[in-house]
Design a protein around this nucleic acid. Sequence first.
RNA 1: GACUAAGUAGCUCAGCAGGUAGAGCACAUCCCUUUUAAGGAUGGGGUCCUGGGUUCGAAUCCCAGCUUAGUCACCA
Length: 593
Amino acid sequence: MIHIKRCERNCYNFNSQIFNRMAELTEQEQIRRNSLNELRNLGINPYPAALYEVNAKSDEILDQFPKDNTLFQNISIAGRIMSRRIMGAASFVELQDPHGRIQLYVKRDEICPGEDKTLYNTVFKRLLDIGDIIGVTGYVFVTQMGETSIHVKSLTVLSKSLRPLPIVKEKDGKVYDAFTDPEQRYRMRYVDLIVNPQVRETFVKRAKIVNLMRDYFNEQGYLEVDTPVLQSIPGGASARPFITHHNALNIDLYLRIANELYLKRLIVGGYAGVYEFSRNFRNEGMDRTHNPEFTCMEIYVAYKDYNWMMSFVETMLSRIAMALHGTTKVSVWGNEIDFNPPFRRAPMCDLIKEETGIDVTNMDEGQLREACKQLGVETDPTMGKGKLIDAIFGEKCEHKLIQPTFVTDYPIEMSPLCKRHRNNPNLTERFELFVCGKELANAYSELNDPIDQLQRFQEQLRLSEKGDDEAMFIDMDFVRALEFGMPPTSGMGIGIDRLVMMMTGEQSIQDVLLFPQMKPEKKATVTTDEEFVARGVTSEWIPMLRKAGVNTITQLKEANPNKLYNDLNGLRKKHKLDIPPIQKETVESWINN
RNA sequence: GACUAAGUAGCUCAGCAGGUAGAGCACAUCCCUUUUAAGGAUGGGGUCCUGGGUUCGAAUCCCAGCUUAGUCACCA
């Protein structure tokens, strides 16, 4: 109930802000609203209900017409006006449809064949703006300047835009006045998508990557599944979860940090392979590579081990690179990365030895602390053996793994869900794939020994009691599932956001998420007109009051009556208001009411 | 969480030995009836992020806060 009430209140506040927007419209917004009204007065619906038949795409016209100029002689196309060059009786418009941009040639006597030239002179030239959405019919031709264009025979208003767009211009591949402010781009992604075509392209690539993976898994008969996002035990990873509350059950639930334990239950259930594109939530820091909600693809395949999984991943990644770029070589953050299999495979301890000269393979916790000290790696008392080794690896090795590298055979303390190594009980059959110094994928030969699993969970509990607040919870139902018997299985998780970053060369996770998490937009607390009226303010003065910087009752109470009286009459003059000047006594009565 | 930088017109940005707020694009009106980021002329548009302080006077200097970005810390 508490949550719902709070929501309703926020919505209410938000709405009262919208009601007040009229008072704060910029000149350009007001002009567009006036145009909107004029359109209606001319009998033109600026937001018509009927569908608009489209039978051509800008990119196809530009591609095919130069080869065969008998095509596209009776087309219908719709999109957004991105620029206009009006030259008296003829004009040129850049129209942006979902596939690109194409120039329109609009001639007065063509769209207004009769005496009445209103559609051209008034509607097109004066009442339409950059950003408006229109549909046109006509035929394709090439202008004197050699540009493939559409000769417009009819024009229909499909949607009037009330806010001016950022104007981005381009000449010979050079972009002028680009819309670049990250805050505005992420908060108003719709604007970003309108004016920055490369942004639209990034998300097309993202979808392509996901589809390629899905096809790859389905080809082999693995099943796509959905598992719970709301979990009473947040398992499958080491991370701090978000907590939420279920009212009917009256229990706290966690948003999932991983879906691993559920997918393995399904392998127990008998599927050959299962996978899920899983939105995970982790209550941790945010930076260029971390968003609180992010997407992981996890896949589990029965009767396989981690060696098989390495080959499986290699093939998948090289296929994605080929499909996107036509080559396995991809430029990522200044490096040329080659996803051509096989990738290098190296045990973690070998890599540490390679970089530091120290062999940590059989060290105990004390020796590891000493090694960390020697190497200048910071430690704290809560760290166990696994975390100490991980600290050394993270500090000394990770950033050097530029070309795709499978780091294998992690210490057992770091991997409580992973099967012991077949040749060394202190290690696990785990690999992580590093590309460009970043972890991209993580995989195991899954632990299917229920007794060992319970002991590992209990070890996590000890770490937790020692102060490690990310140690895993014990999931007894998962142990019970293993007790029924899980086939030998290999599982792999891959960060989709990071994969998309690498495959598109984007530097920030915010550029591969349509709506990255931001702090809520600051909303000015604005008093409603009604509240001002209740205080005695006459409605015609309310906009002026706001212009004078008085937006709340509190501000009004604290205002200097002399200053406000002067300001208001100054504004009256400035805006040539047709109302009598305000009296000082009136202003005082508002303030002291 | 710490440090650094930024926040000025719808957009991109100037302005800062403190003295009436600027440009380009966009917008409006007019001219021209015409092709390439922009033909010409004129004009309107600002809570210089917010709140304090110093000062006769602050967009500019100082302090605090908000938002964003970057680096680090934490974290996969």
